[in-house]
Nucleic acid binder design. Structure first.
Length: 499
RNA sequence: CGGGGCGUAGCGCAGUCUGGUUAGCGCACUUGAUUUGGGAUCAAGGGGUCGUGAGUUCGAAUCCCACCGCCCCGACCA
């Protein structure tokens, strides 16, 4: 059997493989704080790329960034009943504002707060409170605010990037003068997320609406994009909520309408999180570690100098510097190529493998031989590590953008084919039970079935540890009967085991 | 919070049942030599209050008690 950089392989133990990819790529690690991760430089750099791309798209669509407090007064959270129900169980609460030392030298909380403060699990309530102050007239609408922040949800079981107690995200909050505009906003954001995830992270997704029993607490409609991991489980990659007037009524976001009336604003909220990094890992990576789509890779090219002595070293480093200069002048995906010379005092093979495990798209190895040939010797992350090629430098420089482009496209194509091959139409409940029950440990893919959007179908799926992922927005014209209730419906729903 | 497991070097572990000199091994780290277009080899070296506290004993990583922490399985979830 071939030696792989990651042990175990995806096939032998997928969850453990996932953890090992994170270790090998040095993305993040667990911290001394229960359920909270440290995002290490390489992992954070990926997040910064995601932020940059998304931030740009949000600004292009007239959203502006702002920042709201980490702590939310309990009374604010209480205002929207469904919202409270949804989040109460996972809130961390600040009850004191001072520590005092005991005789034993231990610190104990002192100075009890009049009103406990909740560490934000999401910011609808505090932002709604501010919106109520800012919005007086239809002229103040729409108000389209985004914030990049950390939030905390006290999770029982955590997994790096996929579910941690604290995580990073962006949360958008908008208010509109009428219902349709708010719905349009909700769907526009879903498109922006889809574009980010498919175009930059090269992850195909299914756009859909959450069934009513999976809705965001307090929302009228929740939309989502669902992705399929390599173990055929589902992962929600982003959500966008149409909140109707629920939150504006709770927070009293009222405005004078054009015709002199008074109305509650229509609001939306939406977010993507550092979980995207987890899905990026699980969609593309292989048994040699992380595989990064070129557009999102913090470094797209890494140059590894190969030399045997000091005389060679100087010559090789000079050559690398010039090559690096040329590469960084190449444009790819509307930006300069991100290239880096790895000058560390390590063996060439070590460096090469480290960058393979970190998922860098292009590794260049430059030794005296290449200098003599005026050539670039390089390996691609989408080909086996041993399979490398040499190109005259001019050719390499002129072809690099195209190579990165095709790598980006290939990743999406491959992932799309995988997802499509693993979505199955199931006709009836027997098929459904068989599909999900046969082996509880292994997921066979997504099931697409006629089903009504009703909480009563939950009792059929819960025992199988299956979740209703979404009702895809794109549906064919046909209709059928719900496999659970026998009622007529025009819509199919996607079911899957999920993270 | 219910059921199970585990705390020994930075990481992964052996040793604990059956107490006995100076607590080991692999990886990683440092140094030297030989190597060098593919994750090197050999040699030397550094690093531990054996989770914490109390106890039994001539003697505790090992036995007893209490506590703390972590992991896995359930209910919750971006």
């Amino acid at each position: 059997m071939e030696k792989t950089a990651i042990v175990p392989t995806r096939e032998s133990n997928y969850p453990e493989w996932y953890q090992q990819v994170i270790v090998a790529a040095d993305l993040a690690e667990n911290s001394p704080v229960r359920g909270c991760m440290v995002i290490k430089p390489w992992g954070y750099a990926i997040w910064e790329q995601i932020q940059q791309q998304l931030d740009c798209k949000l600004k292009q669509t007239d959203h502006v960034n702002a920042y709201f407090p980490l702590l939310i007064p309990l009374s604010l959270l209480e205002k929207e009943a469904a919202h409270v129900d949804g989040f109460a169980k996972e809130c961390a609460v600040v009850t004191h504002h001072r520590l005092v030392a005991t005789a034993e030298g231990n610190l104990i909380p002192d100075g009890k707060l009049e009103e406990p403060l909740v560490i934000r699990p999401t910011s609808e309530t505090i932002i709604g409170e501010m919106f109520a102050k800012w919005i007086k007239s239809y002229r103040d609408l729409p108000l389209k605010i985004n914030q990049w922040a950390n939030i905390m949800r006290w999770e029982m079981r955590t997994r790096i990037f996929l579910r941690t107690s604290e995580f990073l995200w962006q949360e958008g909050h908008t208010a509109h003068a009428n219902k349709q505009e708010a719905i349009d906003e909700t769907l526009q954001i879903l498109d922006i997320y889809t574009n980010l995830v498919e175009d930059y992270l090269a992850m195909p997704v299914i756009k859909g609406e959450k069934p009513c029993f999976e809705r965001f607490p307090g929302a009228v409609n929740t939309y989502c994009i669902e992705a399929m991991m390599q173990d055929k489980k589902a992962l929600q990659a982003g959500t966008s909520h149409f909140l109707g007037q629920n939150f504006s009524q709770a927070a009293k976001i009222q405005f004078a309408t054009k015709d002199g009336g008074l109305d509650y604003a229509w609001t939306t909220s939406w977010g993507v999180t550092t979980r995207l990094i987890g899905s990026l890992i699980m969609v593309h990576s292989d048994d040699n570690g992380l595989v990064l789509p070129p557009k999102i890779a913090p470094q797209q090219v890494v140059i590894i100098p190969i030399y045997r002595n000091e005389a060679e070293q100087q010559q090789v480093l000079d050559y690398c510097a010039k090559l690096n200069e040329r590469i960084m002048n190449i444009t790819f995906a509307n930006a300069q190529v991100r290239s880096y010379i790895d000058k560390r005092d390590l063996r060439g093979g070590d460096k090469a493998w480290q960058w393979i495990k970190k998922g860098v798209p292009i590794r260049i190895e430059i030794g005296v031989r290449d200098i003599a040939n005026g050539a670039v010797y390089f390996g691609r992350r989408d080909l086996p590590p041993q399979q490398k090629q040499s190109l005259p430098t001019d050719d390499f420089v002129s072809q690099l953008a195209a190579i990165l482009d095709s790598m980006q496209a290939n990743l999406l194509t491959k992932a799309k084919a995988f997802m499509q091959a693993n979505i199955f139409n199931l006709e009836n409940l027997e098929q459904f039970n068989q599909f999900f029950n046969e082996d509880q440990l292994i997921s066979k893919g997504f099931a697409s079935c006629y089903a009504i959007d009703d909480p009563q179908i939950e009792k059929f799926i819960k025992p199988l540890k299956v979740t209703a992922r979404c009702i895809p927005l794109e549906q064919d014209a046909s209709s059928g009967i719900c496999i659970f209730t026998g009622k007529a419906t025009a819509k199919k729903m996607i079911f899957a085991k999920a993270y």
